[in-house]
Simulated assay, not measured.
Amino acid sequence: MALEEGRAVTRTASATEKLLLHHEEKHFTAGDVVRDVIMGVSDGLTVPFALAAGLSGASAPSYLILTAGLAEVAAGAISMGLGGYLAAKSEADHYVRELKREEEEIVRVPDTEAAEIGEILSRYGLQPHDYSPVVSSLRKNPQAWLEFMMKFELGLEKPEPRRALQSALTIAMAYVVGGMVPLLPYFFIPTAQKAMLASIGVTLTALIFFGYIKGHFTGNRPLLSAIQTAFIGALASAAAYALAKALQAA
């Protein structure tokens, strides 16, 4: 009987091991890249679209709208990319400053920092007898201790070394891709009003598609995200068009 129970336990353990070996957790880990793409494409679709609509409302010729639009896309890509670079660089600098400060505190007031480990773990329902071995182990490993405090006390993740440059390039390229969509009709249609109508159709389609994809990746309802994104783009272009018409009338 005991032998059969032992074999059953062995089979269960073996089956568990196989499940663990074949189990792969699929987590989305490209959140920063998606955020940069969303930022670049959404602004790229909206700002040149509004500019082209505004110039069309002012009865500007198609070639002039295209020239102004391309200049705006170039300037916007540089500006957005630089903004992304500075934001990522600031985050990295902040992490380094906090890392040095935390490292000094571990050396200067180790008992206080060790007590903070207990406070952090107690928030997860652990009792002193549960987390005391963890505290002792971390005190023996200063690097792990430092990483623990950075993540769980300060809520800071170590940034990628090339994050600032990657963010700048991603945002800038996404802005160019988005910005070219509303300008495409002006390449082929010489009449500004006709080109504007085609631009509206193309851009709204792109906004709906982009909003749907954005909702999928950000965890929101894709259809609602598509409607919201298209509405914001349409509102911006309508406001620019109305303002240009009002200035022209004045």
Rank of each mutant, 00 (worst) to 15 (best):
L55W: 00
L55S: 09
S56W: 08
S56D: 08
S56A: 11
G57N: 09
G57T: 08
G57I: 12
A58R: 11
A58F: 15
S59C: 14
S59F: 15
S59H: 14
A60M: 14
A60K: 12
Y63A: 12
Y63S: 14
L64P: 03
L64Y: 02
L66C: 07
G69S: 09
G69M: 12
A71W: 10
E72G: 09
E72S: 12
V73I: 13
A74G: 06
A75P: 10
A75C: 02
G76S: 04
G76L: 05
G76C: 03
A77G: 02
I78C: 00
S79R: 07
S79F: 08
M80F: 02
M80Q: 02
G81T: 03
L82S: 00
L82H: 07
L82I: 13
G84A: 02
G84L: 06
Y85R: 00
L86W: 15
A88T: 06
S90W: 04
H94N: 14
Y95I: 08
V96T: 13
V96N: 07
V96E: 08
R97A: 02
L99E: 09
L99N: 04
L99Q: 05
L99A: 01
L99T: 03
K100C: 01
K100S: 01
K100E: 03
R101L: 04
R101T: 02
E102W: 00
E103N: 05
E105V: 07
I106Q: 00
V107N: 05
V107Y: 03
V107I: 15
R108F: 02
V109R: 08
D111H: 12
D111N: 13
D111M: 13
T112R: 04
E113M: 06
E113H: 03
A115S: 14
A115P: 05
A115I: 10
E116V: 08
G118P: 01
E119Y: 12
E119W: 06
L121T: 00
L121D: 05
S122P: 10
S122G: 14
R123E: 14
Y124S: 09
Y124G: 03
G125L: 08
L126K: 06
Q127S: 13
Q127Y: 15
P128N: 09
H129K: 09
H129S: 08
H129P: 00
D130Y: 11
D130A: 11
D130Q: 10
D130S: 10
Y131W: 15
Y131L: 11
S132F: 15
P133M: 05
P133E: 07
V135M: 11
S137W: 11
S137G: 06
L138N: 00
L138F: 12
R139A: 14
R139D: 13
R139Y: 13
K140G: 15
N141Y: 11
N141H: 14
P142D: 02
Q143W: 11
Q143N: 10
Q143A: 10
A144R: 01
W145S: 05
L146Y: 03
E147N: 04
